[in-house]
Write a protein that binds this DNA or RNA. Sequence first.
DNA 1: CTGAAAGCGCTTACAG
DNA 2: CTGAAAGCGCTTACAG
Lengths: 344, 344
Amino acid sequence: MVAITIKDVAALAGVSVATASRVLSGNPATSPDSRARVVAAVTELDYRPNAQARALRSTRSDSIGLLVSDVRNPFFADLAHTVEQAALAAGYVTLLGNANERKEQQDRYLDTLISRRVDGIIVAPLGDGSGSIRSLITREIPTVFVDRTVDGLDIPSVTTDSEAGIRQAVEHLAAAGHTRIGYISGPQATSTGRDRFAAFTRAIAGTGLSQDPELVYFGDYQAASGSAGVHALLQLRRPPTALLAADSLMAVGAIAILHKLGRRIGADIALIAFDDIEWFALLNPALSVISHSVEEMGRIAVDMLLQVIDGAKPESVVLPSELIVRASSSTPTSPASGPSLRTN
Amino acid sequence: MVAITIKDVAALAGVSVATASRVLSGNPATSPDSRARVVAAVTELDYRPNAQARALRSTRSDSIGLLVSDVRNPFFADLAHTVEQAALAAGYVTLLGNANERKEQQDRYLDTLISRRVDGIIVAPLGDGSGSIRSLITREIPTVFVDRTVDGLDIPSVTTDSEAGIRQAVEHLAAAGHTRIGYISGPQATSTGRDRFAAFTRAIAGTGLSQDPELVYFGDYQAASGSAGVHALLQLRRPPTALLAADSLMAVGAIAILHKLGRRIGADIALIAFDDIEWFALLNPALSVISHSVEEMGRIAVDMLLQVIDGAKPESVVLPSELIVRASSSTPTSPASGPSLRTN
DNA sequence: CTGAAAGCGCTTACAG
DNA sequence: CTGAAAGCGCTTACAG
């Protein structure tokens, strides 16, 4: 690689390195003449300041890190997109990392982002507060949790209150006559996995439906576990007549295997997914979903991070969720035993 | 932020900074005793080397940049995932950027990656060779193009040969009796947009179908333009009976509006998309696609980049594409005029 | 095997 | 408004 440094620029412009640096950083203490000559030199040499050296000296890098748990999950892809656009508008470039739902990989990226001295980090965390997550606190690195949190860590967060959406989903299914609802849960190592499972448990109890523990399958938020979950649930002596998947990827896996088994979604079995993904509305039957706003979440996360970087301590934000009923859950299944087909 | 430097480590360990540095970088010229004490100090202080300072000195950063044109496109999300895993296996961390199909943003990210001195860059480029793309060459930064190329630039690339897949798609539709095929093209500012359009034009000519220029709509690889394209094409006095979308996002937009208009895909109108996305197989009817391997593309790209970093000059690779027929194009539409329903 | 010193490419008080 | 100089946190010949 050919290195062009500020020295080359200064030499060509006939000024000192200090003056060149001032022009480059927009310091007003420069003469119009110097400015013109430095700018010309920069253009001619196609000079790019070395961000490493700059950051080393000035302790800010105008960049933030965003660590998501799985880029292939459309929810996180959308989140990455909004965060990036919001950050760009505020003058920050976003370095995106992908933890791949694995703790070691999360630690690895966190270490990288820390050692690259990003100005702040937005992370959808995984696991307990051990490992590199802890360093964020001890090193006082501006951090915001998004979508997920870690118990016991005092870090501002933007999350979704899954309670309302899940309760609506369960009540909707109960109203359609379902008494045995299968739940494909997210991993209990994530706060969303735990929260949504707890919300489901409460909703089931509140609606008086079967609390058979066999109706819960613990997946890992990836497609294959959605398929495995459906497979396991349908093998039960008394299989569920409706399914609730805790994220979009597991829903995809569920749909795939239901197709393969020839079960008609919305007719033979009802299905509702957490996360409102554009594609879900295009399925036939369209998928009922529990929706929450990823755009809002992304914007708020960036906003909060900027505040933290400025030394403030913003309040955590909890966004609402709600059920959107589409065809995948609207056709009532007549359960073997259930006569009560109410509507609300 | 609290800064812990190698000086703190050296002081705690009772050795010089030089020795501490040697232990940290695995230099064999260190005594077991020094090693033990430095390691202990690192653990106690939770020390993370400043990657900026290290890179400044050693001219390598063990990181690569991956610039995709749209993270929300599942093809690129999958690509990001494979590239990242392959890079990780080779000891590199991947910084992901999202050009959002916009030249300015591509330049911005390229500048950032260049100024952060990543060891190499994998990019799905956009536009001509102007702007920051040019700097990659003049600064001799190890670069590999993936999925797309830029005319006139001598940079190794991994791309897909769209010719075969598109020809198969057109022939398949022709065999089903379609004579007017609408084409929703990618932007002509991308090599894939141009290549696929050229392949389509040749395939149409070769099959003797209508070459009516009105049957081509130029989109931008984003969902909204797919909807707009369908809208425009269906307004023609003689609308197409089959549609070919040049990427998955435009296909999504196309499907959405077809649903809204009440046109049954696979019955009222045939649809084929470029890019084999997991979700497409789940649609009902399942979508026929032109498939190419994103995993292979990602792995090869990383492999080539490592070669370039090592000073080699690898040959460009072109991967094949092929049609996968599913229900969205399998039901022959009986065209107003066409009697010739051949099968092959 | 070890330490003192130079230097990577910048920025920023400090004088003038 | 400008330049010389120090220093950010590392690494790496150079002596020993």
